[in-house]
């Protein structure tokens, strides 16, 4: 179920990146970022017999409901980074719009 959502998010993100409008670039980057975060969550975090990596492989998982917490830490870092990058991208696009007066990327030759 979640993998379909990820696929759709990737598709939407790339579709937006390929559009000509500037605002769409930000949307595209946001969608791609979130799709990647979900991908980390699904592939690495949600396993049927997932157990924290600091437990030995041979040890029985002490509690069945305990999940691996490392991917969540990775996601947290990735979210912070993509937040910073999107903030920079917003400023960049605003400045580009100010300097060139264009919002259509194809005319920015």
């Amino acid at each position: 179920m979640l993998s379909i959502v990820i696929g759709v998010l990737y598709a939407v993100g790339i579709f937006f990146l390929l559009r000509r409008s500037m605002v769409r670039i930000i949307l595209g980057v946001l969608f791609l970022g979130n799709a990647t975060n979900l991908l980390i969550f699904v592939t690495a975090g949600l396993k049927a017999n997932g157990q924290p990596s600091f437990l030995a492989k041979t040890a029985e998982a002490t509690k069945p409901a305990l999940s691996d917490s490392l991917p969540q830490a990775l996601i947290l870092t990735a979210i912070v980074i993509s937040f910073g990058v999107v903030a920079y991208l917003l400023t960049l696009l605003r400045k580009t719009h100010e300097v060139t007066g264009e919002s259509d990327l194809d005319r920015l030759k």
Partner: peptide
């Protein structure tokens, strides 16, 4: 940016 996202996705699958 796009390449970074692919890189992270790769890291996730590798993990």
């Amino acid at each position: 940016l796009v390449s970074s996202f692919f890189f992270v996705a790769g890291i996730a699958v590798l993990y």
